[in-house]
């Protein structure tokens, strides 16, 4: 039967990672940090190049809505990024 108080489902005690995962977790975090840095570097370079040409694109980026083709590219990039990190933690394709 369920717990008497349905609010007990608000914050269930779920067992996830253990101490045995900490090394793999560090590997995943480092992989993620690299990806974030590559992106941050690229964004900074893009803005700098454009600024040197007199173009401020920050507001336009904020309002930008991808079309279907570009969204598909973004989806593939995002999925790849997640897979790199999660697979590193989960040990998929490491051998």
């Amino acid at each position: 039967m369920i717990d008497a108080d349905p609010k007990s489902y608000n914050h269930p005690e779920r067992h996830t990672l253990t101490e045995a995962d900490s090394g793999h977790l560090a590997a995943g975090l480092i992989a993620l940090t690299r990806e974030v840095w590559v992106l941050a570097d690229r964004m900074a370079v893009t803005e700098e190049v454009l600024a040197r040409r007199g173009i401020d694109i920050r507001a336009e980026i904020d309002a930008f809505q991808p079309d279907a083709e570009f969204q598909a590219r973004l989806n593939a990039m995002g999925q790849r990024l997640v897979a790199q990190v999660v697979n590193a933690v989960g040990g998929i394709g490491a051998d």
Binding site: D62, G78, Q79, V82
Partner: peptide, 27 residues
């Protein structure tokens, strides 16, 4: 909703997160 870049990319990330973790779930 016409989301701004941070919100749009963050909501999209939830989708990427689901799809990108498929290999781990499959294993």
């Amino acid at each position: 909703p016409v989301l701004k870049q941070r919100g749009r990319a963050s909501v999209d990330f939830l989708v990427h997160f689901g799809r990108g973790s498929q290999a781990v779930r499959a294993q």
